[in-house]
């Protein structure tokens, strides 16, 4: 079992993926999901606070990085954790999230990197949308968008298409799989 950060670090360190820091040029900050940082520390004795920032800094120049919380072990929950995103308590979730709104405003960053599906939904569709709608007291400053960590990595990727031989081998594997699973696509080519 590996976390996304371990795998991304391995890809980057080994040179299996190459990242181009010139592709995204906006100020950014990194949110700390409770599960990857504080609760990981409590449960497993280690956390991803440093590594999460490191991966983001491989994708966008460090000069554009804006810290959200030096003390990441005590960073605030996005407000939708523990299943709250799916629960019928929207007002409580948004009032809770107001503290995250203030934190994001104070960073001055345009992009919030969220390494968690749930946090991303809260920051982007919960807090971000309310801010854009002009909800009273919701000031996220320079905020423009929220990205998953892996979304940011995919945007910064610098890669070449595979070779003819690799493509041919992949197509053969794919066709065998489709036949096994009974998948039929309409031909467009």
């Amino acid at each position: 079992m590996v976390s996304i950060f371990d795998l991304l670090k391995e890809y980057i360190d080994s040179g299996r993926i190459k990242l181009d820091k010139s592709k995204v040029q906006h100020t950014y900050t990194v949110h700390d999901p409770c599960n990857y940082v504080r609760k990981s520390q409590i449960s497993f004795g280690d956390n991803y606070g440093e590594l999460s920032r490191w991966v983001a800094k491989q994708c966008i120049d460090e000069s554009l990085y804006r810290e959200m919380c030096e003390d990441y072990m005590n960073n605030l929950c996005c407000g939708a954790g523990g299943g709250a995103w799916a629960m019928p308590y929207d007002e409580e979730r948004l009032t809770y999230g107001k503290m995250k709104v203030d934190q994001i405003r104070d960073t001055g960053a345009e992009i919030v990197i969220a390494p968690c599906h749930n946090c991303r939904d809260q920051v982007m569709k919960g807090l971000g949308d309310e801010f854009k709608k002009g909800r009273e007291g919701f000031d996220m400053g320079n905020y423009k968008e929220t990205l998953y960590t892996w979304e940011l990595v995919s945007m910064a990727l610098d890669f070449e298409p595979w070779s003819e031989a690799e493509i041919e081998a992949a197509h053969a594997e794919r066709d065998a799989q489709f036949e096994r699973d009974g998948v039929e696509l309409e031909e467009e080519e």
Binding site: R38, Q41, I42, G81, G82, A84, M87, E92
Partner: peptide, 24 residues
């Protein structure tokens, strides 16, 4: 009560409790 569900189980309370109580 609604409390355990509005609490997001973020763990700040448990992390900082000086008596080591496992609130989360």
């Amino acid at each position: 009560s609604k409390w355990p569900w509005v609490c997001t189980l973020c763990g700040r309370c448990q992390y900082q409790c000086p008596m080591g109580i496992t609130l989360m």
